[in-house]
Amino acid sequence: MLEHGGRLLRAVRQYGIAREHWLDLSSGIAPWPFPIPSIPVQAWARLPETHDGLEQAACRYYGAAQLLPVAGSQAAIQALPLLRPPGNVGVLSPCYAEHAHAWQRAGHQLTALDETQVKASLDHLDVLVLVNPNNPTGRSLPRETVLAWHQRLAARGGWLLVDEAFMDNTPACSVVDCAERPGLIVLRSFGKFFGLAGVRLGFVAAEGSLLSRLADLLGPWTINGPTRVLAQASLADQATQHLQRERCAAYSLRLAQLLARGGLAVSGGCDLFQYVRCQHAAHLHDHLARSGILVRLFEQPSALRFGLPACEADELRLAQALATYKKDTP
Rank of each mutant, 00 (worst) to 15 (best):
H4E: 08
R10W: 11
Y15G: 06
Y15H: 13
I17Q: 09
R19C: 11
E20K: 09
W22M: 08
W22F: 07
D24M: 04
S27V: 10
W32Q: 09
W32A: 05
F34N: 00
I36C: 13
P37H: 07
S38P: 00
I39D: 08
P40K: 05
V41N: 09
Q42P: 01
Q42G: 11
A45R: 15
R46S: 13
L47Y: 11
E49T: 08
H51I: 05
D52A: 07
G53L: 04
L54W: 06
Q56C: 04
R60N: 12
R60I: 04
A71M: 11
A76D: 06
Q78V: 07
A79K: 08
P81V: 02
L82C: 12
L83P: 11
L83M: 09
G87H: 00
G87E: 04
G87L: 02
V89I: 05
G90V: 07
L92P: 10
L92V: 12
S93R: 07
P94H: 03
C95Q: 12
C95T: 12
A97S: 13
H108G: 09
L113F: 03
D114T: 11
V118Y: 04
D123E: 15
H124P: 06
L125R: 02
D126S: 10
L128R: 00
N132W: 07
N134E: 14
G138L: 08
S140G: 07
P142D: 12
P142I: 00
P142Y: 00
A148D: 15
W149A: 01
R152N: 05
R156P: 10
R156H: 12
G157V: 01
G158I: 02
W159H: 03
L160W: 02
L160S: 09
N169D: 15
N169E: 14
N169L: 13
T170H: 13
V176K: 03
R181N: 11
R181D: 11
G183D: 03
L187H: 10
R188L: 09
G191W: 00
K192M: 12
K192W: 04
R200A: 15
L201H: 02
G202Y: 01
G202Q: 01
F203L: 03
V204Q: 05
A205E: 10
L210M: 10
S212Y: 01
A215K: 14
P220C: 06
I223A: 04
I223N: 08
N224P: 09
N224L: 07
L230W: 13
A236T: 12
Q238R: 14
H242W: 10
Q244A: 15
E246L: 12
C248W: 02
A249F: 02
A250Q: 15
A256F: 01
A256C: 11
L259E: 06
R261D: 14
G262P: 09
V266P: 11
G268L: 05
G269S: 08
V276D: 04
V276K: 00
R277S: 11
C278E: 11
Q279I: 03
H280P: 04
A281P: 10
L284H: 02
H287K: 08
H287I: 02
L288C: 09
I293R: 02
L294R: 01
L294F: 04
V295A: 04
V295P: 11
L297E: 10
L297V: 04
A310R: 15
E312F: 00
A313T: 14
D314P: 09
D314T: 05
L316T: 14
Q320L: 14
A321W: 07
L322Y: 03
L322C: 07
A323Y: 05
K326H: 14
D328A: 15
T329D: 14
